[in-house]
Design a protein around this nucleic acid. Structure first.
Length: 434
RNA sequence: GGAGGGAUGGCAGAGCGGACAAAUGCGCGGCUCUUGAAAAGCCGUGGGGCUCCGGUCCCCGUGGGUUCGAAUCCCACUCCCUCCGCCA
């Protein structure tokens, strides 16, 4: 959530910033007027409250001095003012709730250096990397035997059974078998091993409270995108970012402990409402998947280095896996609601001839921290301030899995996997027809 | 799921209807003393909203209620602890 004081003090700046992502200026004015109205009623309520308190003190004093008549009169007066105060309090509460609703639905201000644009077509490709060709030499085309979509590779090798997944849970719920399942497990172990030096490994719950989903910005606006367990009012997380952001909810951290860097593997659930039928074959888009996430709470001066670190770790994994990828700087029109700046990593899939998003590395400013109320106390003893949050996938496995089996496919139909996975899959890891 | 106990500041822990943002101890910061340290002594030490910068209001797990007045009384809920039941 953005700071309402920004709207109060410099509405034009907020309008300009939010306008870059297509948010209407009129909605900013609505926030400003809701804020004014709320503060006016609040001020009235508080002065009435102060009056009740001082009258009550006088009642006590009158009683003590034995002046029952005066005490009665004061109590009557206090009761009368109290009634007025209660009405004002109800009004103030209602206005505060209205204001909060407006703020919760307002997206974050984009970073100044995020590229302008209205949609994915305006995103900026910052760089491409091709194994063995990061020196500017021409990128090699994929061989014909690599131009087989992963769903065909998966079913012919018996390592991916989408039909069985559909039988159990409906479409877009993959079921991996045998070496396909081992590959997912190997990728998780591989990624976690690469972050253990600086990021504490967390295994968070997968079902969370409404409050937890609200802190990251996934609620209230995107309720349709998430699975909801109504009986217990719990939500299936779409990413480990959700529980990690709320891990220190309501706490005040010491500046000396920042940045707090966390990594987590979790199942991720996405309803993908409205996405059915488009780009959904095989593992291109699924309802449930596993992902390793990198996450940090940081102070503003630490943000640049932490953001770069998460991005370089995600890129590092792709390089180790030998998968061609590109780094995309998301334009203001394509940023997620909570993000101020996002770099996507996309791997090239030769089987489907498209770039697949496998990671999203974002800086949220204090937008999420304000919703989650995570603050820090500066080392110099100054006033507490909201932390900044950052996160990035490192990485989401279904599309990595897809790219690996396509790029690794040999002329004989077997799949050769990267040697970096040998610790978990054995030497010269590969998958052969059964 | 059932029975009982609990939730107060960084921590421990008093307060159980009237001047309480809250005793006391510990911790932490500053100062005095000291060659230095320790000990001792003194002083200070929660968060937040609004503000005409004079103030003022809110926060004692959360949300309601009673009262002129609630940390304190009542109700509901959440979480923690002990025991029973169930269970991977």
């Amino acid at each position: 959530m953005i700071d309402v004081r920004l709207v109060r003090d410099d509405p034009d700046r907020v309008k300009a910033a939010l306008g870059r992502r297509g948010f209407p200026a009129a909605d900013v004015d609505a926030i400003a007027s809701a804020d004014r109205e709320h503060r006016a009623v609040l001020a009235r309520q508080e002065s009435l409250r102060a009056r009740v308190k001082s009258l009550s003190r006088e009642v006590g004093e009158a009683r003590r001095t034995g002046d029952a008549e005066a005490a009665g009169a004061l109590a009557d007066e206090s009761r009368r003012v109290g009634e007025e105060e209660k009405a004002a309090a109800r009004e103030a509460d209602r206005l505060a709730a209205d204001l909060r609703t407006l703020l919760l639905l307002t997206p974050n201000l984009p970073a100044d250096d995020a590229p302008d644009g209205t949609g994915a077509e305006d995103n900026v490709v910052l760089r491409r990397w091709w194994p063995g060709h990061d020196d500017g030499t021409p990128e090699p085309a994929a061989e014909d035997h690599q131009r087989v979509p992963h769903w065909d590779v998966g079913s012919s090798l018996g390592i991916l059974d989408m039909a069985a997944g559909a039988r159990l849970s409906g479409s877009m719920f993959p079921l991996y078998r045998g070496d396909g399942s081992r590959l997912v497990r190997a990728l998780t172990s591989f990624a976690l091993s690469r972050h253990a030096d600086a990021y504490e490994e967390i295994r968070p719950p997968t079902l969370v409270l409404t409050e937890t989903m609200t802190s990251t910005g996934h609620l209230p606006k995107f309720a349709d995108e998430a699975y909801h367990v109504e009986r217990d009012d719990l939500w299936a997380i779409p990413t480990a970012e959700v529980p990690l952001t709320s891990m220190h909810r309501g706490e005040i951290l010491d500046e000396g402990d920042l940045p707090v860097r966390l990594t987590a593997v979790s199942q991720c659930f996405r309803r993908e409402a409205g996405a059915a039928g488009r780009d959904t074959r095989g593992l291109l888009r699924v309802h449930e998947f596993e992902k390793v996430e990198l996450f940090a709470y940081a102070t503003p001066p630490q943000v640049a280095a932490v953001h770069a670190d998460i991005l370089s770790r995600a890129e590092g994994l792709l390089r180790e896996l030998g998968l061609p990828y590109r780094v995309v700087d998301l334009c203001t029109g394509d940023l997620s609601t909570s993000s101020a700046r996002t770099f996507d990593l996309e791997v090239y899939s030769p089987g489907s001839d498209r770039w697949l998003e496998v990671s999203s590395v974002s800086w949220f400013g204090d937008y999420q921290a304000r919703r989650a109320n995570v603050r820090y106390r500066p080392a110099d003893g100054g006033a507490t301030a909201f932390v900044h949050t950052l996160n990035g996938s490192a990485l989401a496995w279904p599309r990595i899995w897809a790219a690996l089996v396509e790029w690794g496919r040999q002329a004989d139909g077997a799949v050769r996997l990267p040697d970096v996975l040998a610790p978990w899959l054995g030497p010269e890891p590969s998958i052969r027809p059964r």
